[in-house]
Design a protein around this nucleic acid. Structure first.
Lengths: 197, 197
DNA sequence: GAATAAAACGGACCGTGGTCCGCTTGACCC
DNA sequence: GGGTCAAGCGGACCACGGTCCGTTTTATTC
């Protein structure tokens, strides 16, 4: 078909076509199950069955249940990611760092209503994978903004802020403790404003 | 022995003597296994076997593996709890709130070397139980100190600070990212100092 | 098209957390 | 002591995440 010669690589990302097809199948199946039964009730067997593939394939593609959840979360969060990386201010570039920080927290909190369930599922079981590419990207972003407001040690500060915005906490405060979005965003704003010395 | 009459309660906490004995047996067995193989490798079967009781008893007493870990962590942390509740300043009462906050973070970070493993184990699997009595006590303490330094919304602030001090994060930063205790305590101090407007 | 080897597949299998239920034990009353 | 009954016990059992390995598919070369 395309004759490369040395590498046995073929798909777009070096993924065989059947592999790519199954990945989509699995992702779609997983999304449906989450939509139907909730992220908690998603089992790897069910995903495999629904996608019409073997269970081994789930783990070959995603490594673990958490990996599958991560992939799902990344798909859901791509829009958000683009918004804070290159969208319009104040979330995207153009606004002063403190405003962007505040907007980032607001957006994160607002996002929970939509895909908080999936996000929380990625955090559970073995603790959040703090070095997952998406997490790193978020922290890099936060670190840059922290540096922009003159915070000391932006790297550790980014870990702190990311911890404050984790889905498990945010959902708990909203759903179990009945705290309003306004209150949470206000607290976030107070926090980051204080950091801008 | 003591003839009560109506209630069938007997032990100190309304626990039958065999139940109390088995709880100790299980706690000791668990502590030994953690010391030997690490908290990650602790299985409920192994604890039951080592304690010489049935597996069902583990779950009757502690509800879940996480519950057992919590009980273990609470035993290990009793000293720390007394230290910040009624020990000498600056950790205990007597010092100004900001200093107590800083000391609390320092002590929490230092504590990781000793029982971080157990603490992390309590956080994993199903996410940390934010409403566990111990967690609530910590947050209550933090909230009081936050109020003392004039922070806005001490209640939410306490959740924030507790999230920053969670064992999974602290151990990750120290062990996987090679950050020094000094750096982490400095970041913590910077954070709470900023909050004291 | 035939040959080939790497990649992917699938589902039996395993370990572990958690449940269930018939049996035992301990506390209390007489 | 003997009777009672709730509390406790134990281990077979189940569900689910994750592994393993023999089989199938895919891409590529000739």
């Amino acid at each position: 078909m395309q004759g490369e010669g040395l590498l046995r690589v073929t798909g777009d990302d070096g993924e065989r076509t059947d592999a790519a097809r199954n990945r989509r199948l699995l992702l779609d199946a997983a999304a449906e199950i989450v939509a139907t039964c909730g992220a908690e009730r998603l089992t790897t067997d069910a995903v495999a069955r629904r996608a019409g593939v073997g269970k081994g394939t789930v783990f070959r593609r995603f490594g673990s249940r958490a990996g599958l959840m991560h992939a799902l979360a990344d798909e859901a969060g791509r829009e958000f990611q683009q918004a804070f990386m290159s969208g319009p201010p104040p979330l995207g570039p153009g606004a002063p760092p403190l405003e962007r920080l505040i907007a980032f927290g607001e957006a994160s909190i607002a996002r929970m209503r939509l895909d908080g369930q999936i996000l929380r599922a990625t955090e559970q079981q073995g603790g959040p994978d703090l070095e997952h590419p998406t997490q790193r990207l978020v922290r890099l972003h936060l670190a840059i903004l922290l540096r922009g407001i003159g915070a000391s040690d932006p790297e550790v500060g980014a870990y702190h802020l990311a911890a404050v915005l984790n889905a498990g906490l945010l959902l708990h405060l909203q759903d179990d403790r009945g705290m309003s979005v306004e209150r949470l965003t206000a607290s976030w704003a107070a926090l980051v404003s204080a950091l801008a010395a």
